[in-house]
Design a protein around this nucleic acid. Structure first.
Lengths: 247, 247
DNA sequence: CCAGCGTATTGGTATATACCAATAAAAAAC
DNA sequence: GTTTTTTATTGGTATATACCAATACGCTGG
């Protein structure tokens, strides 16, 4: 009838210890940004748990945004979050160039294509309208931050692909084609990365990220550019200042 | 030297089949909102994979936002995303009451407390200032959508807890105390649910969600309310209309 | 009709093991 | 000193198994 002592009810999961340990290590600054965490196997030995349990713990740390995984390289401490004020500007490049964020844009692919129904609806143009489409990877101090796929109405930007696309495109559109951005419709949601995005960002597939979608309008209210950004979830923070309209 | 035929390189993971199957089932509408998916064990049998692999597939479907998990009940098809326009209003309740969303607010806890340094900074008040703090669970047609923790400056709303808190608090503050919201500072990021939030939302711990943080100001620019909402990631979509300011 | 009880189901946790492919580091060849 | 080859490490995938606690459900007795 004797109970095995102190076995009342406190059973917290084994992987919790690992989480608590690294959470405090990271928050206290004992582990710097991009510092390597122990491997799954090493962690299992250190905490006397199986590799799969160690893996479970590391996955939780990723969900918390404290660590990120780089496929078959290891896990590392997440850098500080990056704040992007969507009510100030419509272009992240312009936002980032002011600061010392070390932004570098890499062109992944470009093509001339035609509007699918979904994209046509976003841009308020007819189906099949000629569009420039290009995909770019944005890095901050070498660290991949997000992938952007953008569509621009071809008529408005003749010979656009002759210009350098590894810079702010809204600036390009303004300076070379005299079409400055006036306003934007923005949409933010959580979703999983697809295979291509995962590869570009160096993350495992089906990792959660944040999608920022935006349609950019000129001063006459005409949409001229539609873009979709998929951000590393642990990195992005979007802020806005809203004024309550008439009710 | 003979190769085992058709073993060139196509090895896609086994769990991919499950994902593809249910993705098409859900997108085609063959499975309705909140319909139950097979259990982990049943799925393993159906697809001739182990339970853990079936689990892996279901987790991926959750990341995609196509399914959600209810602890020890099963997995279900996610309802349609809910769009919240943060540039129109500062209160989700007011936004939702107009539509037929079936919003119901449940008061989880309330207390009179004092400002911690973090909260004090958000509200621009001194440390230790008396605050009302209350936690509420927001459901849409019975389905938990997000948990909100809100802080209101006590001086401005005498005897606030004598009122019904299971309604829009910005409306309460406006109608009972004559402090209408004028503007708001909003911040959006991805993060993991903590234990309490998981329990309230009926989700597993360390599940990813979206946090929406906001400080509400009156017409004189004084902050009077600070709130943190944590949304189910697969459910929320935030939209905004931004006008480019002088550059 | 319903409250109470036992039982089956379900997801959450955990272990031990295995193989693979991509990466990184070390060794060898030039 | 540089390039190539080998080797070790790492995360990703996969299986089979086990136990637990919360949930759902059917049965039973009032």
């Amino acid at each position: 009838m004797s109970l095995p002592d102190s076995n009342f009810k406190n059973k917290e999961p084994a992987f919790q210890k690992v989480i608590d340990h690294f959470r405090s290590q990271i928050r206290s600054g004992a582990l710097m940004e991009h510092a390597a965490l122990p491997s799954e196997r090493a962690l299992g030995d250190q905490f006397s748990i199986s590799r799969m349990t160690a893996r479970r713990a590391l996955l939780a740390l990723e969900m918390e945004g404290l660590a990120y995984s780089s496929e078959r390289r290891g896990r590392f401490v997440s850098p500080q979050r990056l704040t992007y004020d969507i009510s100030k500007t419509v272009s992240f490049s312009e936002h980032a160039e002011d600061d010392a964020l070390g932004l570098k844009i890499e062109l992944v692919s470009k093509e001339v294509t035609r509007a699918t129904p979904v994209v046509a609806a976003k841009l308020s143009v007819e189906d099949g309208r000629e569009l420039y489409k290009y995909t770019r990877l944005f890095r901050l101090k070498g660290h991949p931050a997000f992938v952007e796929e953008e569509f621009a109405v071809a008529d408005l930007f003749p010979d656009m692909f002759s210009h350098n696309l590894e810079q702010s495109t809204t600036r390009l559109m303004e300076q070379e084609y005299n079409i400055p951005p006036h306003s934007g419709d923005i949409s933010i949601r959580m979703r999983a990365l697809n295979e291509e995005e995962s590869k570009l960002l160096g993350l495992p597939t089906y990792h959660a990220g944040i999608e920022l979608e935006q349609v950019i309008f000129d001063s006459s209210g005409r949409a001229f550019c539609y873009g979709r950004q998929i951000w590393r979830g642990e990195l992005a923070e979007f802020t806005a200042h809203a004024v309550v309209r008439d009710r």
